[in-house]
Amino acid sequence: MWKWLHPYANPEVSYHFSVKLTPWLTAIAAILIPVGIVWALAFVPADYQQGDSFRIFYLHVPAAMLSMGIYVGIAIAAFSSLVWQLKLADASAAALAPIGAIFTVIALFTGAAWGKPMWGTWWIWDARLTSELILLFLYLGVIALHNAFDDKNLAGKAAGILSIVGVINIPIIHYSVEWWNTLHQGATVSKLDKPSMSVEMLWPFLICFLGFSFFVAALGCKRFCTEVLARNSMRPWVRALATAQEKK
């Protein structure tokens, strides 16, 4: 049943596959993101409560969703590398970690910039913002561990264990922070209700989200290629590639 997957465990095959895949993903992202962003910025009606600051939503929410999704993806890759000894899964986890960290930063920053006009302050210790901040720390830990080892394969294994431990902890951290937040509610500014999404608001959101997902996929493919090359730099096919690149 899974036999069609087996050739892709070969670094060379999966390298060429992702090289082929990258332009398509890039093209889709390059169409969807501008459409979604322009739609969100110019054509969506302003929220009756939050006015035009609501438009940050189209950046904030996709970034936040992707930041969590990418971490889960990294943990799944780490798990499959641990169980089935797939070295390429480690490469993909290493490729994704910085992208996820950047999206976490974007989610945090846009959250702050949205919070300033709405809550009157850049930062409140809101449950979601706090969990996002802790997620950023987890990402930075994974990236730091990747960089701490000279041997890329060892680094991948170590960071994989950390990301699995982290993904088990994420729900616990999230619920404990949420619980902590409701406990100390007195000091915080009253939270805004989730804006109920009408259809005309939903479509651009979906397009933005899909666009950013394809962006992650495209960039992930590109970085995955780099990681595969770095891990196989002594192989003949990589050397042939490198000489061909230099002659160009």
Binding site: I134, F137, L138, L140, G141, A144, L145, L162, V165, G166, N169, I172, I173, S176, V177, W179, W180
Partner: peptide
């Protein structure tokens, strides 16, 4: 400390 401190948060809170 970078790896471990975030994991300590739930214990601290409770």
């Amino acid at each position: 400390s970078l790896l471990v401190l975030p994991l300590f948060i739930p214990v601290l809170i409770f």
